[in-house]
Amino acid sequence: MRLLISQKVRLKLASKVPPVTESEIIECFSNRDGYLLEDTREDHKSDPPTQWFIAETDYGKKLKIVFIYKENSEIAIRTA
């Protein structure tokens, strides 16, 4: 699994209070339990589809991770 985080998304995550780090996103993928959900709203549809889940970091911080899983085992983070 390789995370792809654009500079625009990195700036958005850094400006959140508290900021969201790449390591916290990785922790959430590791701690995920349950199904992935798909965003079916017309304004947010993409190909491949946008998926999301809610999980905790190792320190208990809950994050909603929104991403696109690409064919070559890359995960493009849209937001967290």
Rank of each mutant, 00 (worst) to 15 (best):
T50H: 04
S15C: 11
K70A: 10
I65Y: 04
L13H: 08
A76S: 11
S15L: 10
A76R: 10
R10W: 09
L36F: 15
E38I: 15
T79G: 12
E74Y: 04
V17F: 02
F67H: 07
K64Y: 04
I65R: 01
Q7D: 13
I25V: 14
I75V: 14
A55P: 00
D39P: 03
F29C: 12
E38Q: 13
P49W: 07
S30N: 14
I5L: 08
I25F: 03
D33L: 06
I5H: 06
K16A: 13
W52V: 04
K61C: 07
I26N: 00
S15F: 04
V66T: 15
P19C: 07
L63S: 02
L37F: 12
E56K: 08
S15H: 10
F53Q: 02
V17W: 00
Q7W: 00
K61I: 09
F29T: 10
E42C: 00
R32T: 06
T21G: 02
I75E: 03
A76E: 11
I65W: 04
G34N: 01
A14T: 00
A80I: 03
A14Q: 11
V66L: 10
V17C: 03
E22W: 03
S73R: 09
T57Q: 05
E22T: 15
Y35L: 14
S23N: 13
E22G: 06
N31Y: 09
Y35V: 13
S23F: 07
E42V: 10
R41P: 01
P19R: 06
K8D: 09
E56C: 09
Y59I: 13
L13V: 06
G60M: 10
F53A: 05
E74D: 15
Q7V: 08
E42I: 11
S15G: 05
V9R: 01
R78N: 11
S23R: 07
I54C: 04
I77M: 07
V20T: 09
E71S: 12
I68L: 02
S73Y: 06
I54S: 05
S73G: 03
K12S: 13
P18W: 02
P19I: 09
E24V: 07
I5A: 08
R41Q: 11
V20W: 01
T50V: 15
D58L: 01
T40N: 09
D39I: 07
T21A: 03
D39W: 05
K12G: 07
I25N: 01
I77T: 04
I25S: 02
F53R: 02
D43P: 00
E71H: 06
E24S: 08
L13N: 13
F29R: 07
S30A: 15
Y35H: 08
R2G: 12
W52G: 01
R32E: 11
K61R: 15
I75Y: 01
S73M: 10
T50N: 08
C28Y: 03
N31A: 10
S15N: 14
E38G: 00
S6R: 06
I68W: 00
K45C: 11
K8L: 08
Y69F: 08
A76I: 05
